[in-house]
């Protein structure tokens, strides 16, 4: 990978990040719905109090000045002060980010393994009965609203059969040995992970399938077959390895989707991550937390896209040379 290419990519990443920061500012500072208006809506607020609140939130300055202050704070890592938690937003976000990474990491791993597996099974025998049933069930799974799937799992595993914990990240009021704590955490992780995987597996299954179907009709696949190689070798060594590239791109796109899924799953299962945090921030109109959450979600997706671009180039010799 040439240095020039890398430099160009990093530059474009920096531009995109700056654009997102600016977009975030426009969203939360220029659109109607500032905190003072929110507070004044509840009752009568005398003009002096309004002025004081405006000064407190820095709303008495002109927009360009507010923008510069916003950028300065961002560079210094200051994301504002939560109205509800009465703490700096960064303090509130820390543990939430960790919990979300745990949930999304597990769910993504499961989703990719199962999704790619199903896609290979279907794509290796295009238009067979297995293929059709994988495609149809993928479409059904794709149509499931994430939050509703979670609610159904709660019904089955929590309300009807008391199989698994349905809320939170660990059992309250229990003291655990470190191993017991891990097992408890694992049990709490099962249903949210399962929900996310069920809903998102279709994305990977369908993309893997169509990519493999394309690869299977390539000339080198005909050659492999003509050489008399075993079917398993043909599919896995010659087919899947070449079909995997679009999956790298799909993973970056999936990141944009799964963050929305995480908000719903965390709200349903009270998983104390970024999603639950932004859900609560929506309900209590805690704008600084909402603003920081949106920024972090967007930056995460942009960085994932950047990484997948680089990975794609590293993996595909054809792109590397051109």
């Amino acid at each position: 990978m040439s240095v020039r290419y890398l430099a160009r990519k990093v530059f474009s990443l920096a531009v995109t990040l700056y654009a997102v920061a600016t977009f975030n500012f426009l969203l939360f500072h220029v659109l109607p719905g500032n905190p003072v208006r929110l507070m004044a809506r509840a009752g009568h607020l005398d003009p002096a109090a309004v002025a004081q609140l405006k000064q407190l939130f820095g709303l008495d300055r002109s927009l360009p000045i507010q923008y510069l202050i916003y950028l300065r704070d961002l560079i210094q890592g200051n994301l504002g002060f939560s109205y509800v938690y009465r703490q700096p937003v960064t303090t509130v976000l820390g543990p939430a980010i960790r919990n979300t990474i745990l949930l999304l990491g597990t769910a993504t791993l499961l989703t990719i393994v199962v999704g790619v597996g199903l896609g290979v099974i279907a794509g290796a025998r295009a238009n067979s009965r297995t293929d059709t049933s994988v495609v149809v069930s993928s479409l059904v799974l794709w149509s499931l609203p994430t939050f509703w799937t979670g609610m159904i799992l709660i019904f089955i595993c929590g309300v009807w059969f008391h199989l698994l914990p349905i809320s939170g990240i660990n059992t309250l009021g229990y003291s655990f040995t470190s191993l017991g704590h891990l097992v408890d955490l694992g049990k709490h992780l099962i249903l949210p992970t399962l929900t996310l995987a069920l809903v998102n597996v279709a994305e990977f299954a369908l993309i893997t399938r169509s990519s493999l179907v394309d690869v299977m009709s390539e000339d080198y696949m005909v050659t492999a077959r003509a050489k008399g190689l075993r079917r398993r070798v043909i599919v896995w060594r010659h087919g899947v390895r070449n079909a995997l590239l679009p999956i790298v791109t799909a993973t970056a796109l999936y990141m944009g989707l799964v963050l929305g899924g995480a908000i719903q799953v965390e709200a349903v299962f009270s998983w104390p991550g970024m999603g639950l945090l932004s859900y609560k921030a929506v309900l209590s109109r805690d704008y600084p937390v909402l603003e920081a959450s949106f920024l972090i979600f967007a930056v995460a997706v942009i960085i994932m896209n950047f990484a997948s671009d680089l990975l794609y180039r590293a993996l595909d010799p054809r792109v590397r040379q051109s």
Binding site: M255, G260, F297
Partner: peptide, 8 residues
């Protein structure tokens, strides 16, 4: 296209 849709 890259902005996460549901959070937005």
């Amino acid at each position: 296209l890259v902005l996460p849709t549901l959070p937005l």
